[in-house]
Design a protein around this nucleic acid. Structure first.
Length: 231
DNA sequence: GCGACAG
DNA sequence: ATCTTGTCGC
């Protein structure tokens, strides 16, 4: 089993990580609509951890956006590259996620991350970070509202309410299943918020969470168990 | 100062 | 994220 190296110069403390966010934030593109929902490929990304052995396993699963069928899967194993600090999640998983993406031989299309993009203390969460580093369109779909506030959206699938940081709309609480807790959608890079929500609805014909996330989640858990077995 | 806080 | 069985319900 190959273990991905943490890149030289990777931030070693919180202030260094925040400086990297500030620099990369300048490269964020917000004036593009992004690819249409249901067109081309969509790629789900997720990671699983074994803090005991300091391992992180990333999975990238490419789906055909129209049929939601799996087109290709890739995984990578790395060392945990940063402690979990709210607001600095990206530094914990990005080297391994990039390695998994690099192993794909097909176009990933839109990147769908487990977490946030612009809905972030400094408006640069995991989805934005990954989008800027790859140059691709990306969105974040999170299971929890983090520190943000929102009013309950209507109970029908597709209903939404703004996710607010003070008075600023940083994302949306979007109902993907009638009567079920909403998911929290935000823009990553090179996509509009309305389009990010349209993609999220296309990816949730049956469950609360996007098919991309569900596939990537199960794959990285399986890959983690295999990695532990080889050890 | 204390608590909350994506995964 | 992760520790973790059965169980209630469609």
């Amino acid at each position: 089993m190959t273990i991905i190296e943490i890149p030289a110069g990777w931030p070693v403390d919180e202030s260094a990580a925040r400086a990297v966010q500030q620099e990369l934030r300048g490269r964020l593109v917000r004036d593009e609509e992004g690819p249409g929902a249901g067109e081309g490929h969509v790629t789900g990304l997720d990671v699983a951890y074994d803090d005991e052995r300091d391992l992180v396993v990333a999975a990238a699963v490419v789906l055909d956006a129209r049929t939601l069928r799996v087109v290709q899967e890739a995984t990578a194993v790395g060392r945990v590259s940063f402690p979990y600090v709210p607001g600095l999640l990206a530094f914990r998983e990005i080297p391994t996620v990039l390695a998994a993406l690099d192993r794909l031989t097909v176009d990933p299309g839109l990147l769908v991350c487990d977490g946030y993009g612009l809905a972030h203390p400094r408006r640069f969460g995991l989805a934005s970070h990954l989008g800027v580093l790859t140059g691709r369109s990306s969105i974040g779909v999170a299971k929890n509202p983090f520190t943000f506030t929102y009013e309950q959206p209507g109970s029908a699938r597709g209903d939404f309410a703004p996710l607010l940081a003070g008075g600023e709309e940083v994302g949306r609480a979007l109902r993907t299943r009638a009567g079920v807790k909403p998911v929290f959608v935000s823009v990553g890079h090179r996509v509009s918020l309305a389009n990010a929500c349209a993609h999220t609805l296309h990816l949730t014909p049956r469950y609360r969470l996007p098919e991309t996330t569900r596939h990537a989640d199960s794959l990285c858990r399986r890959a983690l168990n295999e990695a532990l077995g080889e050890e």
